[in-house]
Design a protein around this nucleic acid. Sequence first.
DNA 1: GCGACAG
DNA 2: ATCTTGTCGC
Length: 224
Amino acid sequence: MIEVREWHEWPSAEAEAVAVQERLRSEVRFDGFPAEVRTAAGLDVAYGADDDEVIAAVTVLDLAELSVVDRSVVRSRVEFPYVPGLFAFREAPPLLAALTGLEVEPDVLVCDGQGLAHPRRFGLACHLGVLTDLPSVGVGKTALGRYDPPGPERGDRAPLLLDDEPVGAALRTRRAVKPVFVSVGHRCTLDEACELVLRLTPHYRLPETTRTADRLGRAEARGT
DNA sequence: GCGACAG
DNA sequence: ATCTTGTCGC
């Protein structure tokens, strides 16, 4: 079972949230994946009819078969507004609750958002990685930072730069399709993160992990 | 003042 | 995130 580290009090104001990020970011580790990486979790949040209703969904996939071996959904209410740079304070609480409901502990978390590609180098993927101490990678659909277009072939990549600093990669997962934006979350290298994302994208632009979690969340958002 | 701004 | 039809291409 996944142990979620105590995060003391969740911030209620933006200044507190920034302070939490600056304190926790020193705990991100960059040593590679553990030897055995057989399963990966996809995490996603869907929004319900009520303005403050959120549905956190997690699926665990077996990497060899890309089959779903476990899942968990949690409905709750948002207690933090969406603020660029503070995204994790909105989505991490429900996602951590959903992670707690898993029976199969995944070897790595694949998050729907950024990791180090963040103004303070502590995006959602870093946050979830540090609080669970599980390896994690961030996969964003839009970039936070600038990049030169990578080559057109699947697997082509270009550095993602923020403040003229490399923070991740624009990775092409499908030929001639907009790249995804991969960055390290916790306990992995950028190469490992990109390699994992390619393993998870044999057919579509987005990883199967995020796709299955997304479907699970929307199904729950509309009843059963 | 103007543009940027993960989901 | 979410509200939504048709359309182009493999």
